[in-house]
């Protein structure tokens, strides 16, 4: 909690323009020069909030999918769920749809993608890991190809609005409020569900034997994870590997209690993306990097390490 507050504060004080922490504080209070206020309130704050919410959404979505699949390699990006949401959102842009309807389309894309991946690989027991990953990778590749196709077919004036779906990017994020509107209630809902999820993580049969209504819980988690992914994608494009890295690191530190892991994922995921985005917008400023570059650079080694350890 403290760390996440600190990371937000740090992110707000950092930028391509140097502002003293005092100047930032004044701007937040509505004092100081108009320019500083604009910089902090209009540019940095929304972006930092968007980054934090995106990270939180993705990390929770990842943690939920890992429970659902009982596989620590599950992640919305790796499994192509983000890709599905991206394709649907791109289609929405091409059709001239925006706002909530676009988020809705992204949600349907995410659900479709999840259905595909889970349907093709979920119910196969212990041998499913390889199959799951292959299914996810192939589906992600398919979505990638569709994105390229849509970009190639799009009229030129729509392309700048579409490019960020290629790799997660917060440069374009302007409305973090939808993401927060989803993230906060999600965390609240998950609190009482945490114990049921703990049981579900031990397998559907075990969970049923301990009194969990497995079917409806699985369906709920499944829809929730899709929703979280879709909102994250409409906020920042497909930022990769957050859902993989964060729950993994937290499990190493906090153990496996989902009542802890899920809210902690929201916080830690928020921190990670906030810091990654701070890096992305300052490291070679004025050139800006997509935040997805940074998370992927963190995520790929983690993924390979997990795979290598073979405890799957």
């Amino acid at each position: 909690m403290c760390v996440s507050m600190l990371s937000v504060v740090f992110a707000i004080t950092q930028g391509s323009v140097n502002l003293s922490p005092y100047a930032v504080w004044q701007a937040l209070l509505g004092q100081g020069s108009g320019l500083n206020q604009t910089l902090v309130l209009e540019l940095r704050l929304p972006r930092v909030m968007a980054a934090f919410a995106t990270g939180g959404l993705l990390a929770v979505a990842g943690a939920l999918m890992q429970i659902l699949l009982r596989n620590p390699l599950a992640d919305p990006y790796v499994l192509g769920i983000s890709g599905g949401a991206s394709v649907a959102a791109l289609a929405a842009i091409l059709l001239g749809i925006s706002g909530f309807l676009m988020s809705g389309m992204a949600f349907l894309g995410a659900v479709l993608s999840t259905l595909l991946v889970f349907g093709l690989s979920a119910r196969l027991g212990n041998t499913a890991t390889m199959r799951l990953l292959l299914t996810g990778v192939v589906i992600a590749a398919g979505w990638g190809a569709l994105i390229t196709l849509m970009l190639a077919l799009a009229p030129p004036h729509k392309i700048p609005g579409m490019l960020y779906w290629l790799m997660g990017d917060l440069s374009y994020a302007s409305t973090p409020w939808l993401a927060w509107l989803v993230l906060v209630p999600t965390c609240l809902i998950l609190m009482p569900l945490g114990r049921s999820l703990n049981v579900l993580a031990r397998g559907p049969l075990q969970a049923a034997a301990l009194g969990v209504n497995v079917k409806s819980l699985e369906r709920f988690v499944f829809l929730l994870a899709s929703l979280l992914t879709a909102i994250a994608v409409t906020t920042a494009g497909s930022v990769g590997f957050v859902g993989l890295v964060i729950p993994h690191m937290l499990r190493m530190v906090l153990g496996n209690d989902q009542r802890l892991i899920l809210p902690a994922s929201a916080l830690a995921g928020g921190c990670l993306v906030t810091l990654a985005d701070t890096l992305a917008r300052t490291v070679i400023a004025p050139e800006q990097l997509p935040v997805g570059v940074i998370t992927a650079l963190l995520g790929v080694p983690t993924f390979l390490y997990l795979l290598q350890r073979g405890r799957l």
Partner: peptide, 8 residues
């Protein structure tokens, strides 16, 4: 025993 997911 289905212990797909890590736990103590």
């Amino acid at each position: 025993h289905q212990d797909g997911f890590p736990a103590s």
